[in-house]
Amino acid sequence: MTVDRRWRIALRAIGLTYLALLLLIPIGLVFYRTFEHGVMAVYDSVTTPAAISAFSLTLTVTAIAVPLNTVFGVLCALALARGRFRGKGVLNAIIDLPFAISPVVVGLALILVFGRGGWLGDLPFQVIFSVPGIVLATIFISVPFVVREVTPVLAEVGDEQEQAAATLGANRWQAFWRITLPSIRWGVAYGVVLSVARCIGEFGAVSVVSGKISGDTETLTLLVEKRFQNFDLAGAYAASALLALIALATLLAMTTINPRRDDA
């Protein structure tokens, strides 16, 4: 249906204005404000010891959470797409839970399990207010991404190729490594990109379980908050710009991988 030209322009104008006001202009402004005083100032701001340590903590936590959830994601996707069992609906609902739970509640949950007086509160190492807590929180919130991206791909591809491989003598693991994994690689890649972005950007849950001790348990997102609250606006913007750049890189990766997801 070809819409009347005036309507088409009107709709386009409304849509773009909304996006500009809500999304585009604010983000542009942040970048502008950040680099207002020159790139060097920004560089100095993101290379302070606190910043470097925050960045490395964020990356470390991400580097632990994402691979674990990727392995889980692929195996769970196999179960959902290929397995035959009752309760797939329940499984799906549980996987969706991290999307539906407020990050603060996630942090609270971990405190109630691992904190003082918690169910597992007497472990020999500290979880809450320490790095393991941050890791667990990050794992929780990034659980669904890989499995959600890989399951439809697996369902779509079907298992005929694995059956063919079996007739040609491949055993289970060979079929998995040589046939199944390659067929889902773009779905996995997309899910990994989404997980990484989510892990790096996590704030609420980490805010609750972390002791926010600079240099120890302060992630990059927590650093942004602290700098803002210490009236170091320029510093907050600098760290934010770094995170925003990572987000844009994520978008780029997503747009690149997206079309490939439908080819095996």
């Binding site: 996006l19 999304l23 585009l24 983000i27 942040v30 989404l194 972005a197 790096i200 950007g201 996590e202 704030f203 609420g204 997102t221 942004v224 908050e225 934010s240 995170l243 925003a244 987000a247 844009l248 994520t250 978008l251 780029l252 997503m254 747009t255």
Partner: peptide
């Protein structure tokens, strides 16, 4: 592509 920015951007940012 930018529509997905709120998904990718940390909430604090």
């Amino acid at each position: 592509a930018l529509i997905d920015l709120p998904f990718a951007l940390p909430t604090i940012v």
